[in-house]
Design a binder for these strands. Structure first.
Length: 115
RNA sequence: UCAGCAAGAUGAGUGAUUGCUCUUUUUAGAGAGGAAAGUCCGAACACCAACGUCCCGAAAGGGGGUUAAAAAAAUAGCGGCUAACGGCCGUCCACAGCAAUGUGCGAGGUGCGAACAGAAACGGCUCUGACCGAAAGGUCGGGCAUUCCUUCACCGGAAUAUUUCUGCAGUAAUGCAGGGCUGAAACGGCUAAAUCCUUAUUGGGCGCAAGAACAAAGCAGAAGAUCGGGUUAAAUACAUCUCGAAAUUCUGUUAAAAGUAGUUCGCUUGAUCCUAACAGUAAUGUUACGGACAGACAGAUAAUCACCUAAUACAGAAUUCGGCUUAUAGUCUUGCUGAGACA
RNA sequence: GCCCCCAUAUUUCAAUGGAUAGAAUUUAGGCUUCCGAAGCCUGCGAUGCUGGUUCGAAUCCAGCUGGGGGCA
């Protein structure tokens, strides 16, 4: 799990990010990214009831996404809020596949941000 | 020994590395369940309301207490347990089963629904009184009241006075056995609801997003990353036009009230669990220099490896407890049934 | 998290516990027309699932499943 400071924790923050953020989508999840005024990278994870009815499954997806995000944390420039919205396809994938997908998505974003 | 059925228990452990939450702060310590689930019941606690209610006060008001009545709804042999319950335990009876055991169709009444068929499942039928008629039948009424027994109560039973036949048992209610008849259906007719009525008991509303404390941002102007729409040949390669939303930054000016954003409390040591002793058939209760005990708030309790093993299921605490219901791999225990073998 | 509601043809709605679950709409075929539309006729098509009560359940009772709403 990521420490508390690196998580997005307030409802207002989520609202701001959803209002003005860039969007990226693949088969596993939707990714939204926005700049923040802090000198930190923060992550948020959304797993709705539509993904799975079981709380254990939802928790597992959150933990896996969190772990994947943690591995790439160092490569991202500080000052970004990133939100992952999980899709139902998530339930059928293992950790390695999720990790690869997260890596690919973040790499694509890094190029976009540099320019 | 194998197979099956029923009931119950358990729901892994140790070490290392990395990471998270809380408490301590140098260290270290603690960290999901038997169902945490469904939200089907019952309580605690909190606020609100009302009063057949009490205390303080001159009053304003404050602090307790209760939920009487009515309505919705629930329960129902008898006795016990519990804070309470629609729950649990014991027991009687009835039913099911070879049995272990399970079920509760267990308060009282009405007898609705009933086309066809039928003597009969209620605009009917039977019994009975009066009148009309030769008869078949028709018309108008009655099926009450009293006494005794029984029940917490409502009710019910018996006699005056009656609901298929025979036999046996019984004071009786009724039970058992056999016969006859009816129909699609009856352990029926002698039955019977979860529908309707009555009685007794329970029963105010609302749920921790309850509720409490502290308490910012203000207003005007300017710039504006970025996002969305429009225009357009193209607006998701970049630059550029226009409208709207905007994190953030700068400047000026900011009295009170308020209780918003937010923060903190509520929040976890309690009708708690384990162990032992005693009381009790049991549910359960009492006692102990005894032991154990997650507390988050976009929400922690995880990942990897090794050893070990039968360890592969269902599944994630959210104010807290007591139940019920549903999901559940593997292992273990007890009882029963069937088959085979041996004595 | 706490508290509630709903489920009937493709869709929108009906239906005292009682005969084959009804109407509009959709859809298929036919009639009508030179061809369409409209109209007329005929057909297909449903009680979310599993049990229980009952002689009989869309309806009553219990448990699941799937949708939807309110409360900061």
């Amino acid at each position: 799990m990521l420490p508390k400071i690196n998580r997005i924790r307030k409802k207002k923050d989520f609202e701001i990010i959803f209002k003005n953020s860039k969007c990226l989508r693949n088969s596993l999840f939707i990714l939204r990214i926005a700049k923040n005024s802090l000198n930190l990278t923060r992550f948020g994870f959304v797993v709705s009831l539509k993904v799975s009815k079981k709380a254990t499954v939802r928790n597992k997806i959150k933990r896996r996404l969190s772990e994947a995000a943690k591995m790439y944390q160092g490569e991202i420039k500080n000052g970004a809020d990133i939100v992952f919205i999980a899709l139902p396809e998530m339930t059928r994938r293992n950790f390695l596949e999720i990790k690869e997908a997260v890596g690919a998505a973040l790499a694509e974003l890094k190029i976009a941000l540099k320019k």
